[in-house]
């Protein structure tokens, strides 16, 4: 039989998430390395990062752990699962960890050095991150909003070049007037490919 349990997810929980996300402690730090940004974002919504930093688990155990967290309500897709697993197994494994390394995902280098350079040159990174909301939406959020929208590349290119306001909130995005058509195409394609 299938019991009809009331689902405990509530408005309270949603509001609590918002409060916690705003208020999460900045003092805890994870070892820098590929995937650290994603780990920080996904894990500390529900628990402090100490749950990770004090752990030393095998890759298989981390895999089971991530599976369990997903069952407990953590939101990440299979690609993110793989990134998180690589990160945790490398830096919080039972074997000695490699030295800290840049978080390539957060640096935007995931799409290649060209994209990373463009994000820096045109100051996109000041307000946007791949997977978390800073001043503006994350690149992933943008990609999700426009998934399957054939007109999105053109509109997005326009907004990047001339600036935009009111789509994601009241804070305006300044124009990137100096960007070339080729650069714009590269950026738009990269942003919309984020998952």
């Amino acid at each position: 039989m299938r019991p009809e349990f009331a689902f405990a997810s509530t408005a309270a929980a949603i509001a609590a998430a918002a409060v916690f996300t705003l208020a999460r402690a900045q003092s805890e730090s994870l070892v820098s390395g590929p995937g650290v940004g994603l780990a920080r974002e996904k894990c500390q919504v529900c628990h402090e990062l100490g749950h990770i930093t004090r752990s030393r688990l095998s890759r298989e155990e981390w895999s089971d752990n991530l599976h369990r967290m997903r069952q407990r309500g953590a939101q990440f897709d299979d690609r993110e699962f793989a990134i998180l697993l690589d990160y945790l197994a490398a830096y919080y494994g039972r074997d000695p960890a490699p030295p800290p390394a840049p978080d390539t995902l957060a640096a935007g280098a995931q799409g290649g050095d060209a994209v990373a350079g463009l994000l820096q040159t045109h100051a996109c990174s000041a307000c946007h991150a791949p997977d978390k909301r800073l001043v503006g939406p994350s690149f992933r959020e943008v990609a999700q909003r426009y998934a399957g929208d054939a007109g999105a590349p053109r509109r997005l290119a326009q907004r990047i070049r001339t600036g935009s306001q009111g789509v994601w909130g009241p804070v305006p995005m300044p124009p990137a007037a100096a960007i070339s058509d080729a650069e714009l195409a590269t950026l738009v394609e990269w942003v919309l490919s984020q998952k």
């Binding site: 349990f5 009331a6 689902f7 405990a8 929980a13 609590a16 529900c46 069952q71 407990r72």
Partner: peptide, 18 residues
């Protein structure tokens, strides 16, 4: 016999404790 608690999760996707 399953018991269900009324403790809310931090995220809306958190299943109830049963």
């Amino acid at each position: 016999v399953a018991g269900q608690g009324g403790d809310p999760g931090i995220v809306p996707t958190a299943p109830p404790v049963i």
